[in-house]
Structure formats: C-alpha cells, structure tokens
Design a protein around this nucleic acid. Structure first.
Lengths: 142, 142
DNA sequence: TGTTTATTGAGATTTAGTCTCAATTTTAAT
DNA sequence: ATTAAAATTGAGACTAAATCTCAATAAACA
C-alpha cells in the first residue's frame, strides 16, 4: 500500500482529516529517498512553491510517526532524522556525534563475517542493525 | 577501574585537564544509581553546596559520553538521560526473536573490519552497537 | 447545504543545550 | 618552586528544534 493510503486509513480510524496540506507532505515524503528531517522537508517544499507551513510539516510528521509510516533514524543534537519504514532495505550507519551526519554504508564482507559468527553460535539471523558512532571527516578536524 | 580513573586517563590521552569541577562531577555520577540527566545532576550538586556551573556539567557530560564512561539511555521530549556504562568489555548481541535469548559475542575480526570501513569514509569511530536478530538453535528447530 | 469539528498559518514561545570571553587554573617544563 | 602555555571556568546571552496560540478556514458527513 502506498504511504498516502496508509495515512488516509490511519486518519479515518482516528477521526482526523485528510487535508490538502497532509496530502502535499505525504507525497513529498513518498518522493524522498533515504533520510529526511522536518525542517529540510519544509524548505524543499517551500522552494518548489508549496504554501504549507512549518507547523503543519512538524504536525504531520508526528502523525506519520504515530501511524508507523515513518521511523526515527537518529536523534542527535536535538535534531531528528526520519526515514520511510519501507526504505529499511538493509544498510548500516555511521553517525557523527558532533554534526549528526549519517553515512550509510554496506559491506558484503561484513555481512559474510556476521553470517559466519552466527553459524558458530548456531544462530539463524533474520536482520541486524549496526550503528557506528564517532566523528565525520569535517568534525574531526576541529 | 573507577570512573574517575577512566576519566583521568581519557583526559590525559587528549591533552585535557582534570579540574576540581570535573572531579566533583564525576564523583557525583559515581554516587548516582540508575539514570540521570544533566540538569537534574546540576540541581542536585547545587543543593548540596557545589559551586560548579551548569555549563561545566553539560561540558563534562559530553566528555564522559565521548570517553564511553556513560551512555545515553533515552532521548525523550528533547531531554536526554544517561547512565554509567557497565564495567563490561565490549561485546555485540545476537537476539532471538522467538524466546528473547541474548547471546553476547566478540569478534576481533569484526572490530578490525569496522575500523577499515570507517577509515574508508574518513570517519573516526568512538563506539558502536551491533545487534543481530534471528532464531537461536532451539527455536529454529521448531 | 449546513453543521460540527479538526486543521491551518504566522509568529510567539519554550527550553535543552551551546557559546562567549575575560579571569582563573592546570600542566609540564625549567 | 616559578613560569609560560594552554585549557577551563562561570554567568548569562544565545541558538534552534519543536511546540503552542488562536482566529480563520476547510474537511466530513448527514
């Protein structure tokens, strides 16, 4: 099901309304790849001519969170980043603890090694989550 | 090793100073059970007569985070809570999604590989968290 | 179509956390 | 012990993500 349909269903179940603004926002998110943050989304929409307000973007994002359509990726420096739940095809994260930058990476070697480690323990993996915290190139210099 | 010693070691390695204020703060944390938040810690210290400033409490907590002496427990309502990191050596987790069993494991190869991946991205890691979800031997049979 | 109720925008507000900077303290070398 | 260099401190100003206010507006549904 498309995100828009999921949202409509959720709103109806809660007696809330599917407004032009919410439609605008959910569509923007549907067309967004990877991570996003509320303010960035707002700026992007504003630049492309949308009249939606910052308050509505924040309010709608909270509804999307509540309905499970999006999820928090990271919460650093009081700055939240989100991603669509269906976007959770596998990748791992390096997260800068200074600026909040998120580097996504994928390593087949790492995947294979984990597989081996699991076999050694008689464990059958279905998914995993690796988050490496530290400093990105720019922040480490300072 | 006591938290205070770990902090001294960390500061020395970074060319930073072990001040009266930092000593005061780390001792307060050593005597704190469970989780704490910066502002609460500051109030508690102030009430017992400490002259340490709110800014120093926040600054020291960031150093303790960076050094791995404490860790973020929860981040709710833009309000961070911390706790002392248990005196365990680093390990990762395999978690059974059927029975909840947690297998702790440690792989030097995995640690090295992560280091390499970080270098490739110009990233300087401070800590990481790997959690593999799946089925343990007993649960997989069924 | 009309009535009810949720939602909106603009900007004010909140507040955890950070920054400024002159004065002070630590550290290490002498 | 003295001293020089560098880090740290406190007080309060400042920042910025997120929330709130409230009159005007729009969705939902009979």
């Amino acid at each position: 099901m498309r995100e828009e349909e999921k949202l409509k269903k959720f709103l109806k179940a809660k007696g809330l309304k599917f407004t032009k603004e919410r439609e605008d926002i959910i569509r923007e998110i549907e067309n967004t790849e990877g991570h996003f943050d509320p303010d960035g989304l707002f700026i992007k929409m504003k630049n492309r001519g949308s009249k939606v307000s910052r308050a509505s973007v924040y309010r709608t994002i909270n509804l999307l969170l509540e309905s499970g359509i999006i999820d928090v990726v990271e919460n650093i420096d009081r700055h939240k980043h989100y991603e669509k739940v269906k976007d959770k095809t596998h990748h791992d994260h390096m997260i800068c603890i200074k600026c909040g930058k998120v580097i996504e990476f994928y390593s087949p070697t790492l995947e294979m090694l984990q597989q081996e480690l699991c076999e050694k323990e008689g464990f059958t993996p279905t998914k995993h989550s690796l988050e490496i915290y530290g400093y990105c190139k720019q922040c480490y210099k300072k």
